[in-house]
Write a protein that binds this DNA or RNA. Structure first.
Lengths: 189, 189
DNA sequence: ATGATTTTTTGATATAGGTCAAAAATTATT
DNA sequence: AATAATTTTTGACCTATATCAAAAAATCAT
């Protein structure tokens, strides 16, 4: 059963009742994305969250005509555009597929229903945010105190399984360094 | 009733039942802190969260003997050391008072109790994390793409009411720039 | 208040990483 | 496979910010 993959993810944080499994199964929708395909566009409210079964998505925005990558999300993670999704605001971010990707989507109204009816779902949301929280704090530390080279190494260690699947230019903008600089850093090894 | 100040804060996110108000009142403890006093020390697990009624706290760590400020928290906010508090880990952070401060403390076991028995408390926790989340994302953007000067200006706008109450050296380490640089930036205006 | 300590400012110099431009390598399209 | 488009690398030069050192100003303790 393909939903099992999502269930396993939830099980890292909470005990999933059969009732919740049922409701979840009925609400998630399978999607396949081609490389380069958008799942969300700027100037809209982000209304779905995507659980990646296989593949790699990127959230980015445009700055002076350039794409600036904000995060990358791979297997067994949920992606959405956080601020737009949580606060139902129009967005500046785009989400596209770096690779061909298989995902489940969950609409925000369905998430709302689940949060409303299953207290453990609130708990899941709080706890899983804690994980992301810790990542953001590390990223801030990394940006404040480390050289471009160290930041790249940190990036490779955090995105262990996927860093090699992401084009150099996207990594550079994610790290906030010039693409030329990243190219030089890579050349050192 | 002094607890009203905390209730007002909760009311920004959820409707507070009388039962929850009761339980909260019984669990929060009033504390007064002198300037410079520590409320939490590294090498311990952070077991309390503090709601600031008046004053200013700072969370910092030591790097090569230097104090590096991680955040500042003022009136009507909760402070703790996030990673240690959420994951019950030994900590690297210290929390001290920049000014004489009045706070309520809430022990993690009491928070656990409230989360356990009041689903709206889970909701509050999730939603209030959303607010902090948005701040962290902005801070990351600010670190990646803006000059020291712009970062300082952004800092002043975010910490509108409190930036002037924080010593320059602490602000510099928060922004990840040298204290001399910040002094020069300030001199420009 | 007075000296001691801490914090901030100013000056001189060094460097990591940015920018612009062009070549090389890789990937996509017909 | 050949050509076009995109991405990455290399080179030359420049700028923002770091570092080190010392003076000035502010704050603290007796």
């Amino acid at each position: 059963m393909p939903e099992n993959q999502v269930f396993l993810h939830f099980a890292k944080y909470i005990a999933l009742s059969n009732a919740l499994k049922e409701e979840l199964s009925q609400r998630i929708v399978s999607k396949t994305l081609k490389k380069g395909e958008l799942v969300h566009s700027a100037h809209n409210v982000c209304t779905s969250s995507y659980f990646i079964r296989k593949g790699l998505l990127r959230i980015y925005f445009l700055k002076e005509g350039q794409e600036i990558s904000e995060f990358f999300c791979a297997e067994n993670e949920w992606v959405n555009s956080p601020k737009s999704f949580m606060q139902r605001q129009l967005d500046i971010y785009w989400i596209d597929a770096i690779e061909e990707t298989e995902a489940f989507s969950l609409h925000i109204s369905d998430l709302g229903y689940l949060l409303e009816h299953f207290p453990e779902m609130e708990r899941y949301a709080r706890l899983s945010m804690g994980t992301i929280f810790a990542h953001l704090l590390e990223r801030i530390s990394s940006l404040r105190f480390t050289s471009a080279k160290e930041r790249y190494e940190h990036f490779c260690s955090v995105y262990q399984t996927i860093h090699a699947r992401i084009p150099l230019g996207m990594v550079a903008s994610y790290l906030g360094i010039a693409q030329e600089t990243l190219s030089r850093i890579r050349a050192l090894k």
